[in-house]
Amino acid sequence: MSARDVVEVGARGAAGVGRALVRTVAGVRWYTATLLGDRDYARYVEHLARVHPGADPVSEREYWRVRHAEQDAHPGARCC
Protein backbone atom coordinates (compact mmCIF):
# COMPACT_ATOMS: atom_id res chain seq x y z
CA MET A 1 0.00 0.00 0.00
CA SER A 2 1.41 3.34 -0.99
CA ALA A 3 1.43 6.34 1.30
CA ARG A 4 -1.27 7.91 -0.83
CA ASP A 5 -3.53 4.89 -0.35
CA VAL A 6 -3.00 5.02 3.37
CA VAL A 7 -4.01 8.67 3.44
CA GLU A 8 -7.05 7.91 1.33
CA VAL A 9 -8.14 5.01 3.53
CA GLY A 10 -7.56 7.17 6.59
CA ALA A 11 -9.65 9.96 5.15
CA ARG A 12 -12.42 7.58 4.22
CA GLY A 13 -12.31 6.12 7.73
CA ALA A 14 -12.46 9.55 9.29
CA ALA A 15 -15.40 10.48 7.08
CA GLY A 16 -17.14 7.27 8.18
CA VAL A 17 -16.56 8.06 11.83
CA GLY A 18 -17.76 11.61 11.21
CA ARG A 19 -20.92 10.37 9.54
CA ALA A 20 -21.56 7.92 12.38
CA LEU A 21 -21.07 10.74 14.89
CA VAL A 22 -23.47 13.03 13.05
CA ARG A 23 -26.01 10.22 12.89
CA THR A 24 -25.64 9.50 16.61
CA VAL A 25 -26.06 13.15 17.55
CA ALA A 26 -29.09 13.41 15.26
CA GLY A 27 -30.51 10.26 16.84
CA VAL A 28 -30.06 11.56 20.37
CA ARG A 29 -31.65 14.88 19.39
CA TRP A 30 -34.57 13.13 17.71
CA TYR A 31 -35.04 10.92 20.75
CA THR A 32 -34.90 13.70 23.34
CA ALA A 33 -37.17 15.95 21.34
CA THR A 34 -39.75 13.22 20.74
CA LEU A 35 -39.59 11.96 24.31
CA LEU A 36 -40.20 15.39 25.76
CA GLY A 37 -42.97 16.26 23.29
CA ASP A 38 -41.51 18.73 20.76
CA ARG A 39 -43.18 16.86 17.92
CA ASP A 40 -46.59 16.44 19.51
CA TYR A 41 -48.08 19.50 17.84
CA ALA A 42 -46.88 18.49 14.38
CA ARG A 43 -48.30 15.07 15.10
CA TYR A 44 -51.64 16.66 15.95
CA VAL A 45 -51.73 18.74 12.76
CA GLU A 46 -50.98 15.65 10.71
CA HIS A 47 -53.57 13.62 12.62
CA LEU A 48 -56.24 16.25 12.00
CA ALA A 49 -55.42 16.43 8.30
CA ARG A 50 -55.81 12.67 8.04
CA VAL A 51 -58.95 12.24 10.12
CA HIS A 52 -60.78 15.49 9.39
CA PRO A 53 -59.37 16.77 6.10
CA GLY A 54 -59.94 20.46 5.68
CA ALA A 55 -60.46 21.16 9.37
CA ASP A 56 -58.44 24.08 10.71
CA PRO A 57 -55.91 23.03 13.34
CA VAL A 58 -55.72 25.20 16.45
CA SER A 59 -52.51 27.13 17.08
CA GLU A 60 -49.61 25.49 18.88
CA ARG A 61 -50.29 27.72 21.90
CA GLU A 62 -53.92 26.63 22.01
CA TYR A 63 -52.99 22.96 21.50
CA TRP A 64 -50.80 22.95 24.61
CA ARG A 65 -53.40 24.89 26.56
CA VAL A 66 -55.96 22.18 25.85
CA ARG A 67 -53.51 19.39 26.59
CA HIS A 68 -52.52 20.82 29.92
CA ALA A 69 -56.17 21.43 30.78
CA GLU A 70 -56.85 17.77 30.08
CA GLN A 71 -53.87 16.76 32.18
CA ASP A 72 -55.34 18.92 34.91
CA ALA A 73 -58.54 16.91 34.78
CA HIS A 74 -56.97 13.47 34.39
CA PRO A 75 -53.77 13.28 36.38
CA GLY A 76 -51.34 10.43 35.73
CA ALA A 77 -49.46 8.78 38.56
CA ARG A 78 -45.71 8.79 38.90
CA CYS A 79 -44.15 5.84 40.57
CA CYS A 80 -41.80 5.68 43.46
Binding site: Y31, T34, L35, D40, R43, Y44, H47, L48, V51, V66, R67, E70, H74, G76, A77, R78, C79, C80
Partner: peptide
Protein backbone atom coordinates in the same frame (compact mmCIF):
# COMPACT_ATOMS: atom_id res chain seq x y z
CA UNK B 1 -56.11 8.45 18.62
CA UNK B 2 -56.73 12.08 19.51
CA UNK B 3 -53.11 13.25 19.21
CA UNK B 4 -53.25 13.98 22.94
CA UNK B 5 -53.52 11.33 25.65
CA UNK B 6 -54.34 8.59 23.15
CA UNK B 7 -51.49 8.71 20.67
CA UNK B 8 -49.57 5.85 19.02
CA UNK B 9 -46.00 6.59 20.05
CA UNK B 10 -42.74 5.23 18.68
CA UNK B 11 -41.86 2.20 20.79
CA UNK B 12 -38.40 3.52 21.67
CA UNK B 13 -39.85 6.81 22.83
CA UNK B 14 -42.61 5.04 24.75
CA UNK B 15 -39.96 2.88 26.42
CA UNK B 16 -38.39 6.09 27.74
CA UNK B 17 -41.78 7.44 28.83
CA UNK B 18 -42.72 4.26 30.60
CA UNK B 19 -39.36 3.96 32.28
CA UNK B 20 -39.46 7.56 33.47
CA UNK B 21 -42.93 6.96 34.90
CA UNK B 22 -42.11 3.74 36.77
CA UNK B 23 -38.64 4.56 38.05
CA UNK B 24 -38.12 7.11 40.75
CA UNK B 25 -36.41 7.12 44.10
CA UNK B 26 -37.80 3.69 45.08
Amino acid sequence: DNAKDFMPTDRRVLYGHHFAAIAGAG
